[in-house]
Amino acid sequence: MSDARGSSAARRAFLRDAAQGMCGLGLMGLGLAALAPAGHGEAGTAIRPPGALAGDRFFAACARCGLCVRDCPYDTLRLAERADDAPVGTPMFVARDVPCEMCEDIPCVRACPTGALDKSLTDIVDAKMGVAVLVGRETCLNVLGLRCDVCYRVCPLIDKAITLDAQHNVRTGKHAQLIPTVHADACTGCGKCEKSCVLEEAAIKVLPIHLAEGALGEHYRLGWEEKKRNRDAPLVPGLTELPKRGIDAVPGGPKP
């Protein structure tokens, strides 16, 4: 075999091996990509421990080591299994089984070696594990007009995270309904309410924030917020004043 032929055969062999390698790498990459949690749907609807990084950032950090699980004194946390709506091995809890007791020293966060549970959470009251939502408006005893109040009473942030809002009972025409009303800005998602709901299936449930709170479109602007930010000056300077009509035009009518 001449040198020229030998080296071109070697080059072909090299190119073939390289091509095969790249294809193999591509295949492995695709397989791994299919397994990676991406987007809310695959990140699941499980409730995460306090301080968990938001959304998919959690999966860039969590080692699935279970140190948070081990240090939770109430055995609230566990590692997800195939049946759970969370990637296998990641920490989560089911509030109806064991809610979070909102430990003041937050041992789960302290135990986390990777920062998947963010140590900047130093006051458990600031935790955002999820948000409680009164999902069973047809079954909640309070909505039916009775006085149960249990979810309200057990809330560690009673009167901040959850209030009883009085409303006229249209059915009887003379009573009040005291509707358990969760305030998302204060609710930590601990799940004490869900755990304690007296019904067969809880009428109040903790949902992951992305499900519970909805999301405005990026382009959405709230006029009153924008105006406040603009120190109450009109948002569009020199905007034409509209002529007064109807009752506004009557002298002594409503002031603007």
Partner: peptide, 8 residues
């Protein structure tokens, strides 16, 4: 993917 893929 921005996640620790092998642990899956």
């Amino acid at each position: 993917t921005g996640s620790v893929v092998w642990e899956a």
